[in-house]
Design a binder for these strands. Structure first.
Lengths: 335, 335
DNA sequence: CTGAAAGCGCTAACAT
DNA sequence: ATGTTAGCGCTTTCAG
């Protein structure tokens, strides 16, 4: 029904060859300024748009990259995506976003889908459920450039962008200790995530340095990253049922904080809510609980960096063997 | 570096022609079951993936659709996207998400980008800032299928999916009246949005039916849809400075509710906060203010429907002149 | 039921 | 500085 104008049409109209037109449109130095101007003007006037599909097929590149995150409705990831896009658009790349919803199955399907869709590279933050990495390793082995951010696989030779999770967790826990709390619980993410163990370490270190004994019974994991509110509620019920209830909780993520505060709201009167500190990039969570202290990750910057590293990989003429593992610092926002 | 296997490779290996292989792979009835099986098995074994770019070029279709929303970090839109994806994946379409951040400029750029990127159709929810629709009209005139959802342009002949905004607003306002409030303000979205006038109508209707005089001075618009927190704060300051402060506010959107509650938190002691009811698909807003009554839109369903209508347009053999304007009901969730 | 051949729109090596 | 030609991988007439 609608037939866009092609390079051939322009060539015909201007009595030139398609190659000349193609070159002029990509501003090749070989083309006479005069001719170039004529072509550009004609193209502009007739609203010519390069057909990216044909171009991709010819060049073997799609100028699009895929992003896999657990969900976009999450402050951290939406900010990271903004960072990714800020770089991508500038360099002529298109960003295709895909959500795993922290489900292993959907992650596999989506990654296949994207790879299949001929993206030039992948930006991945692992789903909480994923324990088997073969679907990613396969693609990587086949030569698809991949950069991990936030939730990484450490047994993987490629660029990564993370935050200093250990230090962030330590700061958050320390802030609770400074407020006089001793019995500090930890609501953790899925155990096999990179961020989980790092944040756990920071929590433990803070306790140790303050001479507080670590109690395993005060640590609860959420195997689906809080995707299922029930698992968070169970953890909260557990805390509430303890003979010695925690005075404070260090929560590992935004989503968990949300679920945790919500569960306490439902299950216990306000005066029995513990103090909470946790990782969060939300701009509303502090409203929920006015004394909510949060560890803020530089999400935008992380997205930016990850995208830049990915483009580096994609555009490198030679195989890259030297990988960057960027670690950015967190910021503690206390009230 | 990485060279995927092609139809030609399979044809060569099996001593068949590429056309036979192609047909077998798309399960054509013309192909001998035996041959088909051989081909499918070989393809499977060698991990063949159809090159979607070549396929698109040939077929003149990309099997991808573009979605433009103001932002994904918004419960309503993220739920709508889930709905869109649920249909898209089932029908073999790919979804490319793009955010306008309620900025006219970004909306134009992104829509161009998507159209340029050869999507088969567009699912659009207008940005709050957009008053000039020519960028969309152009594409539509060129034959690009477009379906609007939530924030529509009514002077546009195509399918639309919305909620009954008037009725929803009326219910929310009525709930405030039922709680005994008489002086009810309205914090509205950008004035030129379709949803804004409809929700305003509902608000006015509820007041009228209860014999409450409409006071223009109690209505404040946020021209950037609350994208700029400052504009929300200004409105709240305005309400707080009124000689007769509103006892309750009907807020037009999630984002505005967030900003509004946040602003009150910062600007006034808790006992001076008005009751609030508003449109929202958030699962946390009620935690902010326990008596927050919200009008919930069937976001997932809206996304689903919009996508189905779009596919209908795309796959229709003949030009479509008969358009559906689906209106779904809202649900009032009161506390 | 299978094959040959053309072509989607663009680009790049190889002329000239 | 411009043109010729071939081909990316796939689909689809048309022919057998």
């Amino acid at each position: 029904m609608f037939k866009p104008i092609t390079i051939k049409d322009i060539a015909q109209a201007l009595e030139l060859s398609p190659s000349t037109v193609s070159r002029a449109l990509s501003d090749s130095y070989e083309i006479n300024e005069e001719t170039k101007k004529r072509i550009l003007e004609y193209a502009e006037k007739h609203n010519y748009r390069r057909n990216p599909i044909a171009s991709s097929l010819r060049q073997g590149r799609s100028y699009s990259i895929g992003v896999i995150v657990c969900e976009v409705a999450n402050s951290f990831f939406s900010q990271a995506i903004d960072g990714i896009e800020s770089v991508a658009y500038g360099k002529g790349y298109h960003v295709i976003i895909s959500q795993s919803h922290d489900s292993y199955e959907r992650e596999v399907v989506n990654i296949q889908h994207l790879a299949n869709r001929a993206v030039d590279g992948l930006l991945i933050s692992m789903s909480a459920e994923t324990k088997d990495f073969s679907h990613i390793i396969n693609l990587h082995d086949q030569g698809l450039p991949i950069v991990f951010f936030d939730r990484i696989i450490d047994t993987f030779d490629t660029h990564t962008v993370t935050t200093n999770n250990r230090e962030g967790a330590k700061k958050a826990t320390q802030s609770l200790i400074d407020r006089g709390f001793k019995k500090i619980a930890h609501l953790a993410n899925a155990p096999h995530l990179s961020i989980t163990s790092e944040r756990l370490e920071g929590y433990e270190e803070a306790l140790r340095q303050n001479g507080i004994a670590l109690e395993e019974s005060l640590i609860r994991y959420c195997h689906h990253g809080g995707r299922i509110q029930q698992e968070v509620e169970e953890a909260v019920r557990y805390f509430l049922a303890l003979p010695e209830k925690p005075e404070a909780i260090f929560v590992a993520s935004d989503r968990l904080s949300m679920g945790c505060l919500s569960a306490y709201n439902n299950l216990a009167p306000k005066d029995r809510h513990p103090a909470v500190a946790g990782f969060s990039n939300s701009d509303v969570l502090d409203l929920l609980q006015s004394d909510f202290t949060c560890v803020h990750q530089p999400a935008f910057e992380m997205g930016r960096m990850a995208m830049e590293l990915l483009i580096q990989l994609i555009e490198s003429k030679y195989p890259v063997y030297d990988f960057d593992n960027v670690v950015l610092e967190t910021e503690l926002i206390s009230r």
